[in-house]
Every structure is written in structure tokens, then in C-alpha cells.
Amino acid sequence: MKLVRPVLLNLITWSLVLLISFPLLWMIVTSLKPQTELFRIPPTWVPETVTFEHYWRLLSETPFLRYFRNSVVLASTTTVFVVGLGTLGAYSLVRFRYRGRETLAMLVLFTYLLPSVVLIIPLYLMMVSLGLSNTLFSLILAHTTFALPYALWLLRSFMEGIPVDLENAALVDGASRMGAFRDVIFPQLLPGIISTALFTFILSWNEYLYALVLVNSDAVSPLTTGVMSMLISAFNIEWSLLMAASVMMSLPLIVVFAFLQSYLTSGFGAGGVKG
């Protein structure tokens, strides 16, 4: 009896875990199957032949690499911009006293919850009138609308976790406010900054709506709209190719998961879900 319970528990848990991750496993399996094996009924749950031809085609015959490069530029620039602004802003919101500070913090939280569709129409008009439509820059600006409140909120919460006395000690030891920030606060905040940067990068990497509305040239499309257009434009939907694209598109995420997962979990604690 003593042994049955844990075994049963493991069995149930792992079946559920496998069920949940089945779509992802299926994505990988499909991307490795030759086209001919794809449309068998019933499907082969384990591929009979493993092939990397779809990955090869994806990289050599489709604009995938260009989309990928666009996404890298877009997500990195947004991240650097937003985390840079957010770090200074969070320092100001948490450690300085001035009028309107509380209101500002609440405003940040409010915008953090704002639906994108409310902003998309005016932003579209703004980009058109500034002559910025169909540029990566317009997407960077647009991504700021959700990434900046998010990063500020996260960083603010990380900043609150740093003992005030550390900064005070630095001040007494002869540092200026910015000196204390550089010598003491920044090193302490670094894990929080990394966590925020990862979240921001993933948000920006995955974003679809703004890319759909603000960019319709293939040259500047990021992965999200780019890969979707491969689905729509193809006469015959090549599922293996799309699954290969999906796997490739998730590559940065897989890297983060493999090496930096603790930063993602700590970001959750900070992101407004403290109970």
C-alpha cells in the first residue's frame, strides 16, 4: 500500500504532463516526417523515417531567415530600450519622493492592463502620418506600449526588494545617489533586470497584432506575421514546413528554458501575482 500511492501519483501526473506537452511533441514529430508519411491514416505516432529536409527548405527556399533577423532586431531593440528606460524609471518611482509619484505608479499599472486594440487605431494613424508605416521602428514604438508598463511594473517590484539601507550605507560611505545606484543598486537589481529583459524579449518576439496592422511588407515582417503568411500564401498547406518553422521560431525560448528558467519564475513573483 505504501508503495502504490507514490507510483499512482507519478503515473497520473506524468500522463497529464505528457498530454499537455503532446502538441509540442507532435510539432517536433511532424517537422521530422517526410511529406509522404504525413498524410497516412492512421498517422504514424513515431516517424518511420526521420528527415531534416523541411528545415533545410525553410532556411534555403523561404524568407524565414529574413523574418528571423527582423524579429531579433525588433525584440532586442525593444528590450534594450524598454529595460533601460524602465530601470531608471523604477529607481525613480521606488526611491525618490516627489509629487505625483503614486499617481504615476497607478497609471503604469493601468496601462499594463490596457487592451492593445484601443491603441492600435490611433497608433496606425500616427505611423502613417509620420511616414513610419512598414518600418521596424514603428513596431519598436508600438511594442513599447505594452512592454514599457510591463517592464516598469516588474522592475519596480524587484527594486522594492532591495533593502533601502544598502543605498543609505553607500550614501554615508560617500556615494552620490547615482553613484549608489551604479555601485550598489544596479548589481543587486541585475537578476531582476535579466528576468525583465527575458520577459520583454519574449513578449516582443511573440507579438502579432501590431505587426499585422503596421507592417505589410515582407521585407520588414517579423516571424509572427511572416510565418503566418507562409500558411496563407501556400496553395497546398505544407504542415511539415510550418512545423519546422514553429520549432525554429521557438528556438530562443528553448534556449531560455534550458539555461535561464529561474529568471522566468522569479519574474512571475514580481509581475503582480503576489498573493
Binding site: L24, M27, N206, V227, L231, S246, F257, L264
Partner: peptide
């Protein structure tokens, strides 16, 4: 953390 695009394709 997966892109919605990927989730939808799958």
C-alpha cells in the same frame, strides 16, 4: 511562453 502563432499553427 510559446508564441501564439506557434500555438495556433500546432
Amino acid at each position: 511562453f510559446l508564441s501564439t502563432v506557434v500555438a495556433v499553427l500546432v
